[in-house]
Design a binder for these strands. Structure first.
Lengths: 330, 330
DNA sequence: ATTAGTTGTGCAAGCGATTGCATGATATTG
DNA sequence: CAATATCATGCAATCGCTTGCACAACTAAT
């Protein structure tokens, strides 16, 4: 058996509750007693059993991050992994563990189990899981949605990048650079963030609207856009829903020997490491997923500590201007 | 307070130990009793407190995945995230949680805490953390290293892709395609897997050896290889340590108008989603990170169930032949 | 010197399950 | 039909820690 708190107590010549108090830095304990306890802990190589602690204290010291990943692709999505890194960092500072769980196959049962079986003190959820029945089950359990839910926007607690504003930034920039006919390329038009980006595009655009959906792959973007570029009245600029679409577009332009940025300008959402190294480098609406994760985790801990209720945090996006859209000399 | 096992027992008119046995499917319980208990559980919306369970049973129902990530980049590394996806899947089937922890800043303290504070029943570790003192601390606690440790290869438990064999595959293929002067491009020459890949390259190569280290970025690979390609006696083929190096190489060839695969052949390790869409598409030594995670998790659970001791599992790699190395007509 | 207020520590009752042992009720066997 | 084995269930200890309450010792105020 492992070393317990009473072993330490015995060795230090005190009661186990005193040891507990020393561990948790509670109440007033004589410096001398403290030192005796610490010495005993060190001598016995004592590590408190976190399960027993949690059971007694009612706090489990873990938060859950739920993903909605049908395949490895979605999971390795760098959006997710960067947020996760940030979340883990915040949790570590707080002395919390991070539990990840894929909720894709389970229709809310993953979330329920994490919560009701007392495995976590709080949850970070993907927007796709939000629905009225889940929210009812959650009750006042601390959670934060990472992204804007499609329903219950006002009644839930979430952190998101401002996708509308991102499109606005992109379109404005392209207009300033003198592009006239700006199209929106890519994205599953059913997903919330795409809808919001398209909405921002529509709101800001002055000329003719053109929305070109894709299935999310580079290949599909390539073939789809190829046709469009061959037309006479082709757009002279594109806002791309993601880097995949942009890569496809780059390839199509290369194929047709269309020069970038002089003939066609490109701005893309998301900042893949590779976006900097394409030819030419891509102008990007930077979605700072690290910050997103950080903010979500901070907010979650505030809720766990009962220091706030539902909140909606919208982070603004930044434009990183690179060659793909710089038609005007600086 | 939450619903407890004794509430259920009371409602079902049985003892709490009976309820416990029903939950755990233990011993022989009358069908009728079982049904009464199930009904009571449903009526009260009972969820067993996993903390109390773990404390009593001695099993925590979680495994830990330790990462060694200094920055978000390393963390979002798709190698890691794909493995993680697979690990989570295996764990979920077993009813286990997955705890992730970044051990980068803590010099083994993360691992020690996870293990000794009874937070997990087993650990999946990165090869970089392996050293004699850690192994001593671990003792016979179940763990699996994901990758080959640089030290203690024979005395630890790990799962890895066969990097040497991967290089062998690559070089052989290039030789078959008639390339004569094959160079090895990229990689931090201090990292274990790079060393093993280079070893495989050296072993299989017949002509002149040429090893070109890079700092891992596309940019560095580009500038480094540009110089080399301008020389007269440049290599006519490259084995790239990773996709980043290959992207840099592609860019350099394009710049110098060197045709691929007729003038220069390329094979690269790792299978980024993008590798299929480059121009030309890259021939790849496929590192199946999903399988790696799957095998590691399976092995870990075997160890947790005490069904095996240290084991070393080496998965062989596959070559995915695409245009970048196909000089001969098929 | 008496009273009141701190302070440091011990006692013991939880937290919510699991599980070995005991027991009474059935089933099996000669 | 007595004796034995098997089955279904209850009792109570246990897992290792936290924490409210009690209390003695000491300080400060009147």
């Amino acid at each position: 058996m492992a070393v317990t708190i009473s072993d330490v107590a015995k060795l230090a010549g005190v009661n186990s509750s005193t040891v507990s108090r020393v561990i948790n830095g509670k109440a007033s304990i004589t410096q001398e007693t403290k030192e005796r306890v610490y010495a005993a802990m060190k001598e016995l190589d004592f590590h408190p059993n976190s399960l027993a602690r949690s059971l007694a204290s009612g706090l489990c010291g873990a938060i859950g991050v739920v993903v909605d990943a049908r395949d490895a692709e979605a999971f390795s999505n760098f959006f997710f992994s960067r947020s996760l890194f940030a979340i883990e960092q915040v949790a570590q500072e707080k002395g919390y563990q991070v539990i990840i769980a894929n909720g894709a196959q389970s229709k809310g049962r993953t979330i329920e189990s994490l919560m009701k079986e007392r495995k976590v003190d709080g949850l970070i959820l993907p927007p796709t899981t939000v629905n009225p029945s889940l929210m009812e089950a959650i009750g006042d359990f601390p959670y934060v949605v990472l992204g804007t839910p499609d329903t219950l926007r006002g009644a839930t607690c979430w952190v998101d990048n401002n996708n509308e504003q991102g499109s606005d930034l992109a379109v404005h920039h392209l207009q300033e650079q003198g592009y006239q006919h700006i199209a929106y390329l890519g994205g599953n038009q059913k997903r919330g963030f795409t809808i919001r980006r398209v909405r921002g595009y529509k709101k800001t655009i002055t000329g003719e609207e053109l929305i070109i959906p894709t299935d999310g792959t580079t290949e599909n973007a390539y073939s789809t856009v190829l046709e469009i570029l061959e037309k006479k009245d082709r757009p002279d600029a594109f806002v791309c829903n993601d880097n995949m679409a942009a890569f496809g577009l780059l390839k199509a332009c290369k194929k047709l020997k269309i020069r970038i940025p002089s003939e066609v300008g490109i701005v893309a959402f998301d900042n893949y490491p590779l976006a900097e190294y394409t030819d030419p480098p891509l102008t990007i609406v930077d979605i700072d997923t690290g910050m997103l994760g950080d903010q979500a985790a901070q907010l979650l801990f505030r809720r766990i500590d009962k220091r706030c209720g539902n909140q909606q945090i919208m982070l603004s996006t930044n434009l990183i201007v690179r060659e793909s859209s710089e038609r005007l000399a600086k």
